[in-house]
Amino acid sequence: MAKYNILMHEMVPEHWLVPVKEEEKILKSLGVTKGQLPKIRRTDPVIKTLEKAPGIGEIVPGRIIEIVRKSRTRGIAKIYRTVIGE
């Protein structure tokens, strides 16, 4: 990869891999299915970088990524994206 860590870039919000155990709880609170969430490609640079971080490993399609944005309206906003293959 590269000499830089894009997770530290100003424009990249926090991305966290949601543990499989917590997925159901999140989906229930939002009242949606995995397929209805916004998507993020598995080949997305952030996902590829996240896989290299210690203690995360391979991220397979179907997992949920929690994104914590610095929101201009809410202060902090949490959203979720489903990982898709290609």
């Binding site: 894009i6 870039h9 424009m11 640079p45 952030v46 944005r69």
Partner: peptide, 16 residues
């Protein structure tokens, strides 16, 4: 280019 280097979320930020 942002979406290719920094990912979709950064691209969303850039569009706004």
């Amino acid at each position: 280019e942002i979406s290719q280097v920094l990912g979709v979320e950064a691209a969303r930020e850039a569009i706004i």
